[in-house]
Amino acid sequence: MAETPLQSLDTMGKAELMNLTQSRAFAMRDLALYLDTHPTDSNALNQFLESKRDYEKYAKIYSERYGALSMSRVCEENGWPSWSNTPWPWEKEAN
């Protein structure tokens, strides 16, 4: 079951929003491995789709506010530096 975030998305800080986004990405990846060996489990598929829907929502907000999570999320307003000049994941300040 996906938890509802305790804090409003509008006031959520960078690290919290990243954790929320990646918690949904992780749920998707873990369910993906299960679905690879249980492809007809509809309950698992529903959980996957629920995580995916949340992930898409949070990843979009994160990318617009704090920097593109992937190249395909670079937008006109934020420009290229939102991909290339925000902290890279191995830096302490990115986590």
Binding site: Q22, A25, R29, S72, W88, P89, W90, K92, A94, N95
Partner: peptide, 14 residues
């Protein structure tokens, strides 16, 4: 492969 700019689980070593 496409890159996502995040670690799968956060690493923050003091």
């Amino acid at each position: 492969f496409q890159y996502e700019k995040a670690l799968q689980y956060p690493v923050k070593i003091a």
